[in-house]
């Protein structure tokens, strides 16, 4: 059945204007439909969607803590199995980059290793936005955050590279891992659909712009996420059963745009334009990724 015209995520939530997370959520739920149980790690999404006594969720939803969404979901999977109701229910987890790549990584890895039939979606806004823009392992190289401050002694912002979480999850050899971008909606929807059709652990890493933390105009949310993929910084791909040799790049930009086009409209990268060498470094990193994977795809 097609539930695209139904809204399983109600308005009235308290996300900042222009936040990408609810766009991601509404589309995941339109694809997964009403027979879905949602598990949420602590984070912006959990906070802005459940201001007690109200909730935006029109599906069963549970939040327990920050680092254990995958474990909580594992318990639900086991319980449904135990009562013979496993087959017709989707279990979908939403975790931010903090709740997934950092503090929740252990429980996510455990969930994947144990083979639970769960779709885990990391909405990646590339910092701890809920507590006010602190760096995470998923914050990109060169980004300003409130804990990678930029000043004369530290002109770069974040000095480390972004943790390649989707590749790490693919290395778990789980049946399906993909990156996704709601700005490329048909691809995004197809990936959710495909993931839900596969039994076992699935992981989707979706970019999720944060207008507050990325420092761009709220109206530019989709545009900037689109640029992330058009510049090749956030490539869209999928890997099945951990087979990197068969990586499938699902969107091939005709000509990748220079990374500056993505970095320029975002305040968090403003200082980089005083460090042209660093921008070159980012471009080099992107080019290397494509050189490595483009031919395989």
């Amino acid at each position: 059945m097609n539930y695209e015209d139904m809204e399983f995520f109600a308005p009235g939530h308290r996300a900042c204007a222009g936040c990408a997370a609810p766009i991601i959520v509404k589309w995941v739920l339109k694809i997964s439909g009403p027979k879905t149980i949602v598990v949420n790690a602590t984070g912006c999404l959990e906070v802005f969607s459940t201001p007690y006594p109200h909730t935006s969720w029109r599906l069963p939803w549970i939040h327990t803590a920050f680092e254990n969404a995958a474990a909580t979901a594992s318990g639900i999977d086991a319980a449904l199995k135990a009562i013979g109701k496993r087959d017709d229910v989707n279990i979908v987890v939403f975790g931010g980059d903090g709740g997934t790549s950092d503090i929740g990584f252990q429980s996510l890895s455990g969930m994947a290793e144990r083979g639970h039939n769960i779709l885990y979606i990391m909405y990646d806004n590339e910092a701890y936005m809920n507590t006010g823009i602190q760096r995470s392992s998923s914050t990109p190289f060169g980004a300003w955050t409130s804990t990678t401050q930029v000043g004369p002694s530290r002109p770069l912002g974040k000095e480390e590279f972004k943790k390649p979480i989707a590749e790490i999850m693919a290395a778990h050899k789980i049946p399906y891992v993909a990156t996704a971008n709601p700005a490329f909606l048909p691809d995004f929807k197809a990936k959710i659909q495909k993931a839900l059709s596969i039994k076992g652990p699935k992981f989707i890493h979706t970019i999720s712009s944060c207008t507050t933390g990325w420092r761009h105009d709220p109206s530019k949310t989709i545009e900037i996420m689109r640029l992330a993929t058009e510049t090749g910084i956030f490539p869209l791909w999928e890997i099945e059963n951990g087979d990197f040799s068969k990586i499938k790049i699902t969107y091939m930009p005709k000509q990748r745009k220079p990374v500056e086009e993505y970095l320029k409209p975002q305040g968090r990268f403003r200082h980089l334009f005083n460090e042209p060498e660093k921008i070159k470094e980012i471009q080099k990193m992107v080019d290397e990724w494509w050189a490595k994977f483009e031919t395989k795809s």
Binding site: A10, P11, G12, H13, R14, S49, T50, P51, Y52, P53, H54, T55, S56, W57, R58, L59
Partner: peptide
């Protein structure tokens, strides 16, 4: 004011009562 045990919410989609 009503509360619920364990803060469970049984009115799905009720943020639609909160206009933004």
């Amino acid at each position: 004011m009503k509360i619920s045990r364990g803060a469970t919410i049984t009115e799905p989609g009720s943020t639609s009562l909160e206009e933004t």
